[in-house]
């Protein structure tokens, strides 16, 4: 099982959304991290065959992304997508199951099973227009699993889910990743931290890091510091170093920041986290 992305580029008139991205994915969970506009959604859309790359190829076990057989093994949860408000959840699932080529009986069984999995079995006969955002998101997750996909691409899957649902979803993804390629993008760093076997970091259309959590964090290991400083010193440090966290503590300012050497003598070196790395790379981007 191999999903090969070879020098994939997506160029618009005045912007390169994805720049020569090459990746080989095998069974497992991949977490795609990046700020808004980093190119995550563009890459995912190209991997789903709904956006043609300017150059490069995408193939699963030699099957081109544009082939029906590729779509047959694909499950996709887009970031922003619509429903048919007048459809019931059950009808919606049956419709998607038909689109995915499931026979009618199997479609009924699978729909019931997945609605149960996402705790929507009691709402199966209710119209989608009555659903909350979280319920719609769960329905979206359920539809992506209808064809038991070998490639599961989830764009911001935990958006709109409450903490309990998120934990349930993370566990589900972990299970699914054992037998298939799961690629998920999210802004919620802890989701990736908990479930991704491999983390992919995108910035400005390029893949800047990829590896396990330990490998990724290694970039900033020994460079994360915490200290309490005066207001004036804090302002100077904020200008010189990427600041991960800042808060008022009495008369002092608490800082968590990244720099090569201790920012001051009493600074404490702390264990780096994925969130540190994310903010290290993307806080600047978000400010822009």
């Amino acid at each position: 099982m191999e999903l090969a992305i070879d020098r994939v580029t997506k160029r618009y008139a005045n912007k390169i959304a994805c720049d020569r991205i090459s990746l080989t994915l095998h069974a497992g969970v991949y977490g795609l991290l990046g700020a808004n506009g980093a190119g995550k959604t563009t890459l995912m859309r190209m991997m789903c065959g709904v956006l043609a790359p300017t150059s490069g190829t995408i193939a699963f076990d030699g099957i081109d992304v544009n082939h029906e057989d590729y779509r047959d093994v694909l499950g996709y949860l887009p970031q922003d997508f619509g429903y048919y408000p007048e459809f019931t959840a059950q009808n919606f699932m049956l419709y998607i199951a038909m689109l995915k080529g499931l026979p009618k009986v199997r479609a009924m069984e699978k729909s019931r099973e997945l609605l149960e999995l996402v705790s929507l079995e009691k709402e199966a006969k209710k119209k989608i227009k009555t659903f909350s955002g979280g319920m719609k998101q769960r329905l979206g997750i359920a539809q992506s699993l209808l064809n038991d996909p070998k490639i599961l691409i989830l764009d911001e899957p935990t958006a709109g889910l409450d903490p309990k649902e998120r934990v349930r979803f993370r566990n589900l993804i972990s299970r699914l990743g054992a037998k298939r390629i799961v690629l998920l993008s999210t802004h919620i760093v802890s989701d990736v931290e908990h479930i991704a076997d491999t983390i992919l970091l995108m910035k400005n259309g390029q893949l800047i890091h990829q590896g396990t959590l330990e490998q990724i964090i290694d970039t900033i290991t020994g460079k994360v510091w915490e200290c309490s400083v005066s207001q004036e010193a804090a302002e100077i440090m904020c200008e010189k170093h990427p600041v991960i966290n800042i808060r008022q503590e009495g008369e002092k300012i608490f800082l968590r920041l990244i720099c090569e050497n201790p920012p001051q003598d009493d600074a404490t070196g702390v264990t780096a986290t994925l969130e540190d790395l994310y903010l290290y790379y993307f806080s600047g981007v978000n400010e822009q």
Partner: peptide
């Protein structure tokens, strides 16, 4: 296109032919 359901349709097996 307007509802955003095109993404689900076009990534499904029959979305680009039978449908």
């Amino acid at each position: 296109y307007a509802a955003g359901t095109d993404q689900l349709i076009l990534t499904s097996r029959h979305g680009k032919n039978k449908l």
